[in-house]
């Protein structure tokens, strides 16, 4: 087991860095005075890695993700994705995103929902027909292309959202608790599928999650955050070889690392 804090995290010189967060913080004004959602933090994510952000509610993990997507502006500091500002980066269609809520357009069928980002980016849909079908197939929804969201189950809708997040061939994928609303059984299943999808593309991925086992199963690195104010407490490397199989969930090493993570979440300085 290796512990690495943010300052000593060694980046192999040959691996390119996809995401640089440099002293970015966020404070929200409220009627009872300003609340520090995120103290200025720094983080580097290397190309092709899978990083999970985990922490209690109010630790600013979603705020961090939204800042990377350019949906929130940091008060100070800077965020660079492949040495571009988020607003510029996302305009080039290099960003894929999925939220806790699938946020599907209720009047569009599965195919049209997956194609939606292409329309926003102003790209043609016809030449991408095959790719869209392949993505729907990838998330296991073959045959449901013409179904409306209201005809799908919660898990199926979430898989549509995952397919949609991949349609623009993003180089960076942001997932904000995409399985948070699913039950435990479905969640495991989706974890396996996400790993399969990710392995097929090796897209740099940032995953916000509440689930300790989900983070350990999926990530190369788990960033543990604490609340009040939101900050990075620790970064834990996950050494397990890929591809990871469901057997891993029951291995002692897996449980040991989950326990370490739990301890880090409740560690000194963590808010009760």
């Amino acid at each position: 087991m290796t512990y690495m804090t943010i300052n000593t995290s060694p980046t192999p010189p040959e691996a390119a860095v996809d995401l640089i967060i440099d002293q970015a913080g966020k404070t929200f004004p409220t009627p009872r005075g300003p609340v520090v959602a995120l103290a200025p933090i720094s983080l580097k994510v290397t190309r092709g890695s899978f990083v999970a952000l985990i922490g209690p509610s109010g630790c600013g993990k979603s705020t961090l993700l939204r800042m990377v997507a350019g949906l929130e502006q940091p008060d100070d500091g800077a965020i660079l994705i492949r040495s571009k500002h988020p607003e510029q980066f996302r305009k080039e269609g290099e960003l894929g995103i999925a939220f806790q809520d699938p946020a599907l357009l209720p009047w569009r069928n599965v195919f049209a929902n997956v194609a939606f980002p292409l329309q926003i980016l102003g790209r043609p849909i016809k030449p991408n027909n095959e790719k869209i079908r392949a993505l729907i197939d990838l998330v296991g929804l073959k045959g449901y292309e013409d179904a409306l969201p209201s005809q799908l189950s919660g898990g199926m809708r979430q898989r549509v959202a995952i397919a949609r997040s991949l349609v623009s061939d993003p180089s960076v994928l942001l997932l904000d608790e995409p399985f948070g609303a699913l039950d435990q059984i479905l969640r495991r299943q989706m974890n396996l599928e996400l790993q399969r999808i990710w392995a097929a593309r090796q897209t740099t991925t940032l995953l916000v999650t509440h689930g300790i086992d989900e983070a350990v199963f999926l990530a190369d690195e788990v960033v543990v955050m604490h609340a009040k104010p939101g900050r990075i407490a620790e970064i834990i490397k996950v050494p397990f070889a890929r591809p990871r199989t469901p057997d891993l969930f029951s291995s002692p090493e897996f449980h040991a690392l989950c326990d370490t993570l739990t301890a880090a979440l409740h560690g000194p300085g963590a808010a009760a």
Binding site: A69, R90, I97, A103, Q119, L121
Partner: peptide, 19 residues
């Protein structure tokens, strides 16, 4: 969330209005 989605792909008010 839909507004966020459109913004995340660089779409502005016009795209949001249209789609």
């Amino acid at each position: 969330r839909l507004a966020d989605l459109v913004a995340a792909y660089g779409g502005g008010e016009t795209k949001l209005m249209l789609h």
